[in-house]
Design a protein around this nucleic acid. Structure first.
Lengths: 219, 219
DNA sequence: GTTATTTTTTAGTTTTGTCTAAACATTAAT
DNA sequence: ATTAATGTTTAGACAAAACTAAAAAATAAC
């Protein structure tokens, strides 16, 4: 089945609101999607007719299994594009959301498959949120600050919590970006600083303060 | 000014039809865009109101300077995405058109700038058609078959006219793809076969028959 | 447990882009 | 030069997705 851009936006937004509260209300969805409650009611009827959610007047609503699967597919596309925009095109973390909001509606299945392969099957987007697989399955990755990673373990950078220009400059200097593979060589217990090795570059030392801002996962 | 997906499709299609005939007719545009003549008339009024074309009832039409500039921007986006799909995602030449038709409507200017840079400012799409620059300027690149390229000149592969599986296999074997830089080392006048060097790979010999299908340009 | 407030829904419009069927221009045919 | 055929436009309708204003339901306040 095929959905309009508008329908996909509603589905995605309901999915997001569901993460926070048990049932979603008309007003909260209207607010999320920047529209009026009356428009939400109209669309709910449509989505119910398409059997993507259960909805009883005045009682709130949730996506059903079908709706959730479709939502996860949209989320998957969104996060893959975000990853692409940051790691390949050099966008900064906070600039990619709106563009990914447009790209996510391009509907070719083959496109997303090939994009995923091209990006080397990333597990999390630049904000650290997990990327669902083709079947909508989310692998809950154990993200942790690099400050807490055991030594000698290969990890992949998933996100950076501090996005100041200074931090960006430092990361660039050490060749660290989203998707970068690295290993913690050792940890100095005196001040918590760690030595890391990034692919072919010489090992370098980063302070605990910096390390705490860099989040990683391993397979 | 901002245009809807539908408006952009009309603008692009008028642009394409203009290349072939002096003025564009309602019927030909309806046919090109897979719609009815009545719908075309409606849209023409709208595009005229937005001052993108001159149009007199029953007399055919053409984009004016403004319209042309917008069309060239859409064409630019389309062709950059096609180049991306082929060279980065590994799509085949003939599969990319429909996907690029969707991607071309994503409206971020910064996105296209960065995509262009990421692709290393290609001058032609995988079908050999030139890519307009940011200002809509088309550099008429002198494409020629590699069979006709003087020796010792660095060139970039822009398109391949024969897309049979055999040709694709051969190109892959010699590491030749769209955007590949190569040099003709020498030409054997006996049978017209040429020796080429592709980046860091060992030089190899290709027959004149193959060479005639590979089109290139130089700066 | 009424009344007041908030939330949600309905009813009726609007805009965009499409369509069909009929009317009108233009071009071709005899 | 009429008539026939073709191409184009108008008029009116429709679907999608939004809106406003008013009605109805649910919740909160006293």
């Amino acid at each position: 089945m095929n959905f309009s851009v508008s329908e996909e936006n509603y589905i995605k937004s309901i999915y997001h609101l569901q993460q926070q509260s048990e049932t979603v209300t008309t007003n909260s969805l209207a607010n999320e999607i920047q529209t009026k409650p009356a428009s939400v009611t109209d669309m709910l009827k449509k989505l119910q007719a398409k059997k993507l959610l259960e909805y009883k007047k005045y009682k709130g609503f949730r996506l059903n299994a079908t709706g959730n699967k479709i939502a996860l597919n949209i989320v998957r596309r969104h996060r893959l594009w975000e990853y692409f925009l940051v790691t390949k095109l050099g966008f900064e973390w906070d600039k990619v959301h709106d563009i990914a909001d447009e790209l996510e509606h391009v509907s070719s299945i083959e496109l997303i498959q090939k994009l995923d392969a091209f990006l080397n099957y990333p597990q999390a987007d630049p904000h650290g949120d997990p990327i669902p697989d083709v079947n909508g399955k989310i692998t809950v990755i154990k993200q942790q600050s690099i400050a807490d990673v055991p030594v000698k373990r290969n990890v992949i950078v998933s996100s950076v919590s501090n996005q100041s220009p200074e931090m960006l400059e430092l990361l660039k200097h050490y060749h660290i970006g989203i998707g970068t593979e690295l290993k913690v060589n050792m940890r100095l217990s005196f001040d918590g600083s760690i030595e890391i090795k990034v692919s072919k570059y010489a090992a370098c030392i980063i302070s605990e303060q910096v390390a705490k801002n860099i989040f990683v996962y391993h397979d």
